[in-house]
Nucleic acid binder design. Structure first.
Length: 281
DNA sequence: TACCAGGTAAAAA
DNA sequence: TTTTTACATGGT
């Protein structure tokens, strides 16, 4: 089988939890113990393997996408050494060994995905986004290719709203698709400038720009301070009671420098796990 | 039935 | 300048 090596430790099940926790994601579909995604028009099945993952079929050009999808750019060992100095973070990290946050391989998909999650619960976001994918994406075997930017550039906002997006979000997505901005080129741009360019687009605020840095570009210092889940997680682990204000979360982020992104992912996942085990069935 | 959920922009105060 | 409101859906 075609092995894609990943640095140890790596826990495939734990790391792909995002694609199961809030319902299925038709473009990154958990199916029969593996993660299915369309890469270059062909569906690839990714499954756990010693030393990394198996990816089948693994065409030339698919391996970088798979590696990005699985969060290969993150330096987990450096982060673990860093986290050991913070007793609170250390406890969270110890309970999640091998968690390597997945990254959205495509900038367009990352942006639309974040827009879909603005304001609403992730379950609602997944449900609505799946309808967009089914309506405008192309199905391969079990998974769908995420709708292409060129495709959504030519549809009316009303057609997107018909899949469950608010009228405002539907207009945001069409405007994104039609904008002049080269999303791929943002990979070579500094964090603050990426945020500046994205925030000039209608419907894109700081939260969406922060998650683009965190979940697509994998920037080490990305810290979505305005995120409700992160606010709850940080408040849970670093404060006895009450919820921290956004500005307090932003300030607290410097404590994790230069590992804000990994810290955010570990705190969010740790909080999710803790919140689940608190409530008896 | 209400109310909240990984926000944003525009209106009102 | 700061605060309030509309937005659409899914889960509880």
């Amino acid at each position: 089988m075609p092995l894609v090596p990943l640095p140890e430790p790596y826990d495939f099940e734990l790391s792909t939890g995002r694609y199961r926790a809030f319902g299925p994601d038709l473009a990154n579909l958990w199916h029969d113990g593996g993660l299915h995604r369309v890469v270059g028009g062909r569906e690839v099945r990714i499954s756990a393997a010693p030393g990394g993952v198996d990816a089948d079929p693994l065409d030339e050009g698919a391996e970088p996408v798979v590696r990005h999808l699985l969060g290969a750019p993150f330096d987990l060992n450096a982060f673990y050494a860093f986290a050991a100095a913070d007793p609170v973070l250390a406890r969270v990290v110890e309970r999640l060994p091998g968690l390597r946050p997945p990254l959205a391989p495509d900038p367009w998909e990352a942006l639309v995905t974040s827009v879909s999650a603005q304001q609403v619960s992730l379950r609602a976001a997944f449900a609505v986004r799946n309808r967009l994918i089914a309506a405008f994406g192309e199905r391969a075997e079990v998974a769908y290719a995420f709708p292409r930017r060129e495709r959504l550039a030519e549809v009316a906002p009303e057609a997107i709203a018909a899949t469950g997006f608010s009228g405002r979000k539907a207009e945001t997505i069409v405007a994104l698709a039609r904008s002049e901005l080269d999303f791929g080129a943002l990979a070579g741009v500094a964090d603050d400038d990426v945020k500046g360019k994205l925030r000039r687009l209608p419907g894109i605020g700081e939260w969406t720009a922060d998650w683009f840095l965190a979940r697509h570009l994998g920037r080490p210092r990305a810290w979505p301070a305005g995120d409700l889940g992160l606010r709850k997680a940080v408040s849970h682990f670093y404060r006895a009671d009450g919820m921290l204000a956004i500005d307090d979360v932003r300030t607290l982020g410097s404590r994790f420098d230069p590992f804000q992104n990994l810290s955010a992912h570990y705190l969010l996942t740790g909080w999710l796990v803790a919140a689940r085990s608190e409530v008896p069935p």
